[in-house]
Amino acid sequence: MAYHDTTLRTKHKTLTLEELHLSEEVRNSIHQLIEEFTYLEALKKYDIPVDNKILLHGKTGCGKTATVHAIGKALNKEVITLNLGGFVSSKLGETGKNITELFKKTSYNNAILFIDEFDFIGKLRDYDNKDSGEMQRLVNTIIQQIDNMSDTALLIGATNHLEVIDSALLRRFQIKLKYKLPTSEQLDNYYDSLLAKFPKEINSIKRAYDLSYAEAKDIALQQIKANVIQIEKRNKA
């Protein structure tokens, strides 16, 4: 099955929320979420439910996945990552059973189920008419599992295409956070913090704008690597 478990161990260093470049609105909402789970028992005394279904949407490379792992780190929760686009089988009934098992595992472990490419459920409308009934059953299965999810577990979906997701699914998410491209000022601050790690002789780059933090990092590092290589070539000449 196309999913994997992570705790605090990831391919790259797991950043804290303070280290992420987030808008004030997104940051405040995430902090509220963490506060609710930190004081979950106090809220239960008054029968107040926590918001445990979050949808992150917006541009690629703006920190959605990093946010999920930062939440996992802050709450010390296992993150179960499911890429929906690579998970859906041609046998949709089989996919429904597998998704049900993942939701059960998430609830049992009080974990975070992170569903990436959540918009893929909308793209399933492109299946042949003969599959439309199976597709609707899959959507209904996901809705049922979301509704039955333990309030001590978290569901976080991520999408770049909010508009294609079934409205009945969208209604299940109590929190929807939009990730926008950073402004030129925000990118300059990001470039400054990134370049400060390197000596002056290699940190001279041409800055690009109107792109995500991930794209900015790639562009900056490509130029820094080129600078390093040029210095090495000169030293060996």
Rank of each mutant, 00 (worst) to 15 (best):
H69E: 13
A70P: 08
I71G: 01
I71R: 07
K73V: 06
A74G: 10
N76P: 00
N76Y: 11
E78S: 15
E78D: 08
I80V: 14
I80L: 14
I80T: 10
I80R: 08
I80G: 09
I80H: 02
I80A: 08
L82D: 00
L82Y: 10
G85A: 15
G86K: 09
F87L: 00
V88Y: 02
V88C: 06
S90F: 07
K91H: 13
L92N: 01
G93T: 15
E94S: 15
T95G: 03
G96I: 09
G96N: 12
K97N: 12
N98M: 11
N98R: 15
N98A: 14
I99D: 01
I99F: 12
T100S: 14
L102C: 08
L102F: 06
F103R: 04
F103P: 01
K104F: 09
K105P: 07
K105H: 11
N110G: 15
N110W: 04
N110T: 08
N110F: 05
I112N: 00
I115L: 05
D116C: 10
F118Q: 00
I121K: 04
I121R: 01
K123T: 05
R125W: 09
R125I: 08
R125A: 04
R125F: 05
D126M: 09
Y127W: 01
Y127N: 12
N129I: 11
N129L: 10
K130M: 11
S132R: 14
S132Q: 15
G133P: 00
M135Q: 12
Q136G: 07
R137D: 03
L138R: 01
L138I: 11
V139R: 00
N140I: 12
N140A: 13
I142G: 05
I142P: 08
I143C: 05
I143W: 02
Q144V: 10
Q145Y: 06
Q145K: 14
D147R: 04
D147C: 06
N148Q: 12
N148T: 10
M149H: 03
S150C: 05
D151I: 01
T152N: 13
L155W: 00
L155G: 02
I156H: 03
N160I: 09
N160R: 09
E163Y: 12
V164P: 04
I165R: 07
D166N: 01
D166V: 04
S167D: 12
A168N: 02
L169Y: 01
R171C: 08
R171W: 07
F173Y: 03
Q174A: 03
K176D: 06
Y179P: 00
K180S: 15
K180F: 12
P182M: 06
P182R: 05
